[in-house]
């Protein structure tokens, strides 16, 4: 009995020593990231297999937390930043260049950022239920002119990234006429939610006929639920580009590991996990290597995107057009 206890104690002690010697890479990620159905666990296993290190996620707020922590931050790498915050992040001076060759990226827009590295992308789109909407709008104009009993849910541009993408999308399509476009859309908007989850919940509950979501959303229903009643309406005016990014902290005490992780982001191993765990498109994987459900998705011909400086300049105006049209 005593012998066994001693032995167990020694094993435990050895394990602790081994753990103490293993370098730890701390990755800040969005909250959904590390749940068992999110992309986190697969990425963790895949990276740990090659780095001989321990990858630890800290999930929750991303940029606000890093800005508050400032140089004291524990993060070595952050994954899940969106294009609307890169300007602020860059100006903080807390992030370091990744030093990678980005020519392998397969994005529909040119991307030459030396600090923020895309790991997945998608486009805003209105997703509808085929059983309820027999003839979906064929263009953005069609949507504006649809009868007012078409029920639409969208997200607030002041609290949600997809909501912000929508006002920039409308601005990209309609420019100075954005407010008039919003006024036409307003009667069809059932409600505006804080985030994407609430909107999508309303949509799947049948509260709305169409929801502001992503071109890739139907893939989830097709692949995970074998339900092909959901589809994204594709507009010839173009769709707004949404991208998620990873970056290395300048203050990292593990620069080699952090660099290794950034390089891992562009590997096929990493990229092929993205579609069916993040339910979005991989940033560096040719289309023929996408899962079948994704390859079959209709994709927009034209992709709209404002870089961070343009977006920052337009943002207040675009939100105000939305606000004043919907406040009437």
């Amino acid at each position: 009995m005593l012998g066994r206890t001693l032995a167990a104690g020694m094993i435990a002690a050895t394990a602790t020593m081994a753990a103490a010697e293993t370098p730890v890479l701390t990755v800040y990620a969005g909250d959904y990231f590390k749940s068992e159905w999110g992309p986190g666990p697969g990425i963790e296993a895949g990276f740990e297999a090659r780095c001989g290190c321990d990858l630890v996620y800290k999930t929750g707020e991303l940029l606000p937390r890093i800005l508050l922590e400032d140089e004291r931050t524990e993060a070595d790498v952050v994954i899940g930043l969106t294009s609307d915050v890169t300007k602020k992040a860059r100006e903080s001076g807390l992030f370091a260049p990744h030093g990678l060759d980005t020519s392998a990226l397969t994005l529909p827009v040119a991307w030459q950022d030396d600090t923020f590295l895309p790991f997945n992308y998608g486009h805003t789109a209105f997703v509808y239920n085929k059983e309820k909407v027999a003839t979906p709008p064929a263009s953005f104009d069609d949507l504006l002119n649809a009868p007012d009993d078409l029920r639409l849910v969208i997200q607030d541009p002041r609290s949600s990234i997809s909501g912000l993408a929508l006002v920039l999308w409308v601005h990209a399509v309609y420019g100075d006429e954005a407010e008039a476009a919003w006024a036409k859309l307003a009667p069809k908007i059932v409600t505006v939610t804080k985030g994407w989850s609430e909107s999508y919940g309303l949509f799947t509950d049948g509260e709305a006929d169409m929801v502001l979501s992503y071109t890739t959303s139907p893939a989830y229903h097709i692949i995970a639920e074998e339900d092909d009643t959901k589809a994204a309406a594709i507009f010839p005016e173009g769709h707004y580009f949404m991208v998620e990014l990873a970056a290395k902290l300048a203050t990292t005490d593990n620069p080699e590991l952090a660099d290794q992780f950034m390089a891992y982001v562009l590997t096929e191993d990493f990229q092929s996990m993205i579609p069916t765990s993040n339910w979005s498109l991989p940033s560096a994987l040719p289309q023929e290597k996408w899962p079948e459900g994704f390859r079959a998705l209709p994709m927009p011909e034209k992709v709209l995107f404002y870089n961070e400086d343009e977006a920052a300049a337009l943002r207040d105006e675009a939100i105000e057009a939305w606000r004043s049209a919907l406040s009437r």
């Binding site: 606000p64 409600t191 939610t193 804080k194 609430e198 919907l326 406040s327």
Partner: peptide, 25 residues
């Protein structure tokens, strides 16, 4: 207010705080 308010008319102070903090820092 955000889910049932039906749009920016129903913006509360708490939402404005959230926006200031999270979007504009």
């Amino acid at each position: 207010a955000l889910t049932l308010g039906g749009g920016p008319r129903a913006t509360t102070v708490e939402l404005a705080i959230y926006q200031a903090f999270k979007f504009d820092f």
